[in-house]
């Protein structure tokens, strides 16, 4: 997997300036927000004027902006993202506590959207212009227009309020004392609605992209040649056309990571899922700027990590990637 290694290295090198810009940007936002870290710290513990000045000196906040940026970077290097006003705890602790729930939610939503979306896209794209294609194309366009948070509310009304099949919020039943598989099942039940609400927009997106990709691939010579070789239609659809059309979709997965993280803010708020997105909303509501910026920073790192994973997956799927130097063809 030499190719993947080259790719990963290139992506990581590219991430350095990007992260630097993000960090400087968050620092600028932090500076422009009213109050500083000392206000934040003392807002929760209380303290007199003398203590304020003392702390400002100790933390270097009485120095110029460049020095402060230096201190900020040094703190980041120590994985110190600052102090959360709202939680009276280090920002990183709060974030790490919530991160798993968001990863679970997003991971499931991606799996649903990518799995089902590309599957239906194959169905639509296996015979472009056919009846299944028409229905799925129109349906996906309609789904693509549905705001996730509203869909979440509708799902709650139908499945939690009317039918009482599924819980309306939270990540698991509180104090149920469930362990192991029972607990996993409980969490899964809680995740069904938020995952659907978050994933359906992307499902529509992947469906449309898969279909469009397949239409492209059908025009290529090898699809025609496969027919000339006597391969059955289903065979051509799945093993050749869908396989090739999947590649751009994988790239899309990386591009959509950031958008989906943004989407989970609203969805987690609707379903009271204690994740990163809801945390962001809480940070906004309580004017906890360090926490919000910490979330943005962690979000950016997360997006870079997802893109890294996508690169590796792409290299595994497409043998042509990174092979440029070895062959002359």
């Amino acid at each position: 997997m030499n190719r993947a290694f080259v790719l990963v290295r290139r992506r990581l090198l590219g991430a350095v300036p990007v992260l630097a810009i993000v960090v400087v940007g968050t620092f600028a936002l932090l500076e422009s927000a009213p109050g500083d870290a000392v206000d934040a710290y003392l807002g929760t513990t209380g303290g007199d004027r003398g203590l304020v000045d003392q702390l400002r000196r100790d933390w270097g906040l009485d120095q110029g902006p460049l020095q402060r940026l230096g201190l900020y970077l040094a703190a980041l290097a120590r994985l110190d993202l600052g102090w959360s006003v709202a939680f009276s705890r280090p920002v990183l602790d709060v974030i790490l506590e919530r991160l798993p729930n968001t990863l679970l939610l997003m991971g499931s939503a991606v799996a649903l959207a990518f799995g089902l979306g590309s599957l239906l896209g194959v169905v639509a794209g296996s015979r472009p212009g056919g009846p299944a294609d028409r229905i799925l194309s129109i349906g996906s366009l309609a789904l693509y227009a549905v705001p996730g948070f509203w869909l979440g509310l509708v799902l709650i009304v139908v499945f939690a309020v009317q039918l009482r099949w599924l819980p309306s919020g939270g990540i698991e039943t509180i104090a149920s004392g469930k362990q192991g598989l029972a607990r996993a099942g409980d969490i899964a039940r809680h995740l069904v609605l938020p995952v659907a609400a978050l994933g359906i927009l992307y499902l529509a997106l992947y469906l449309r992209m898969m279909r469009a990709g397949m239409v492209e691939v059908w025009r290529q010579d090898f699809a025609r040649a496969a027919f000339a070789r006597g391969l059955p239609h289903r065979h051509i659809v799945w093993r050749h056309v869908a396989r090739n059309a999947l590649l751009p979709l994988v790239t899309m997965l990386g591009l959509q990571a950031a958008t989906m993280l943004g989407g989970s803010v609203v969805i987690e708020s609707v379903f009271a899922v204690p994740g990163l997105g809801r945390l962001a909303h809480e940070a906004v509501a309580q004017r906890d700027t360090p926490l919000l910026l910490g979330i943005i920073l962690v979000g950016a790192v997360l997006v870079i990590a997802v893109n890294l994973a996508v690169d590796i997956a792409y290299a595994a799927l497409d043998p042509r990637v990174g092979a440029g130097q070895e062959t002359s063809a």
Binding site: Q220, A225, A228, R243, N244, L317, P319, R320
Partner: peptide
């Protein structure tokens, strides 16, 4: 097609699946 008749197209690159 394929069973009784084998067909070779003009463009050698285009008639092969690039990822298989």
């Amino acid at each position: 097609p394929g069973r009784d008749i084998g067909f070779v197209y003009q463009d050698p690159s285009g008639s092969l699946d690039p990822v298989m």
